[in-house]
Amino acid sequence: MRDRIMYVLATLSAALLTWNLYKIFMILPDEKNQGAIYRIVYMHVPSIFTGFTGFFVALAASALYLITKDLKYDAFAAAVTEVSLAFASIVLATGMIWGRIIWGIWWAWDARLTTMLVCWLIYFGYVMLRRAIDEPTQRARLSAVVSVFGCVDIMIVYKSIEWWRTQHPAPVLSVRDGGGMGPGMESPIYWNWLAFMCLASILVMVRMRQESISREIDSLRRMAHAY
């Protein structure tokens, strides 16, 4: 059953991405001020949406673990955080490429960039912490707490655009104050988000399967030692 879901999601994601790439590169015109490079927004923004959705899902899973003490939620939280970390890396990479072309520098120490980097470092710390603890329940407990603390940092990232002066482009989507994108330019962002979410779900499922197999190997090893 799980295999079948994965195949369906993979097909959906591949079809969506192909159609979107065709639309982004063949149909949509260059942007008035930025030229061709603006197209990177179609990777950048959906990645950050996917990454942040993942971090919030991980927060919920961590909270569920703390309430139920069921290790299944811990495995889910860990898988989602790792995948979201990958998408956060895409956000940083695409943002840097865009910055190199438009601002002329790879990295501007702007508030939003900095906080995004900090956020990445926090979740990298989360992954490192998991590696440092062998005992499964202790690992689950402590990393759940770090996930909660990290999520508070994400909220600071989100608020930072209002709190701190920034040279990061203002939000361009129409859900916030009208937005600045031309007609038809905005929808591929949402379609790409959907495609990325499908992709992320597949990765999470693969990661969770790895996790359960490694647990099985662990228990087999323990059994072998017992003899």
């Binding site: 900095t114 906080t115 926090i122 710390g125 490192m128 912490l129 440092a132 603390f149 940092d153 600071i156």
Partner: peptide, 29 residues
């Protein structure tokens, strides 16, 4: 908080700064 969190870890001295400094960034800034 993180001193309590890392107290039983093998790599306590390494893990504490790795976790603490990123969390502190808004306050330090």
């Amino acid at each position: 908080t993180f001193s309590a969190l890392t107290v039983n870890l093998r790599m306590r001295e390494v893990m504490l700064p790795t976790l603490v400094y990123p969390m502190l960034v808004p306050a330090l800034m």
